[in-house]
Amino acid sequence: MGVHEVENYFKEREVKKDIIFLGESSATVPLAAKALGVEEARIAKTLAFNGKDESLVIVARGTAKIDNSKYKAVFGTKAKMMSFDETFEKTGHPVGGVCPFGLPKDIAIYLDESLKEYESVYPAAGGNHTAVEITISELENLTGGKWIDVCK
């Protein structure tokens, strides 16, 4: 599970994206940045939350932090991240490999404004040793994610 869904996601959309398979863990922003040789801010971390009425993921710049008051203003509830087990169960991706590709249809995808600082970023690709380089425009078009501002 995970990487295969991402590969299929790209294939179904006729998008040529090469998944980067890393020889070391990319499960955290610092590890991913080191493995890819890029600055931490260019890692697109995908955070999984239980919203008020939906399960959702937020993709944000690697160095961004969720601002609880902004989150509550957008979603009407306090930010509550999914547990380790719940993340895999609801997203199909393991913690450290969660990404906005190949998710179940009932997971809402949001893109934080913090990503717009870069032309391209590196989200995970369904596994904790994977990544894919993607432009912000491609990320928006491929995921259908809604732009929000919930980070500081």
Rank of each mutant, 00 (worst) to 15 (best):
K16W: 04
P94H: 00
G37N: 04
D149I: 05
T63H: 06
F10I: 12
G51C: 10
A41W: 11
A79S: 15
V121K: 00
C99T: 09
T91K: 11
L31N: 07
I134M: 15
A33E: 02
V95N: 12
V150Q: 06
N8K: 15
A131S: 15
E140Q: 07
Y122H: 04
K17N: 04
A73K: 04
A108G: 00
A131D: 10
Y110V: 01
N68H: 03
K78D: 13
P94E: 00
Y9P: 01
Y110F: 00
V57F: 07
A32L: 08
A33T: 05
L139R: 06
E86P: 03
M1W: 08
K72D: 13
I20A: 05
S26C: 01
P104G: 13
K78S: 14
K65V: 08
A44T: 01
V29C: 01
I136D: 10
A33V: 12
T46Q: 01
I107P: 08
K116M: 13
A64G: 05
V98M: 06
G2P: 00
Y110C: 04
G96K: 02
H129M: 04
K152M: 09
A35K: 01
T63Q: 12
E5N: 15
K90E: 00
I66G: 05
G102V: 10
R13L: 02
G97D: 06
N68K: 10
A125E: 00
I109L: 06
F10S: 00
I109D: 06
S120Q: 10
I148N: 03
F101W: 02
S25Y: 03
L139Q: 13
K152S: 06
P30K: 11
I19R: 10
I43N: 01
K80S: 08
T135W: 09
F75Y: 15
M81V: 12
A64Q: 12
S114F: 07
L111E: 00
A44I: 08
M1D: 14
V150E: 08
G37V: 15
H129G: 00
S120M: 11
A60C: 08
I136K: 05
L111H: 05
V38C: 09
A41F: 13
L142R: 04
E86H: 04
K78F: 14
F10C: 12
E133M: 11
G97F: 09
Y118Q: 11
G62H: 03
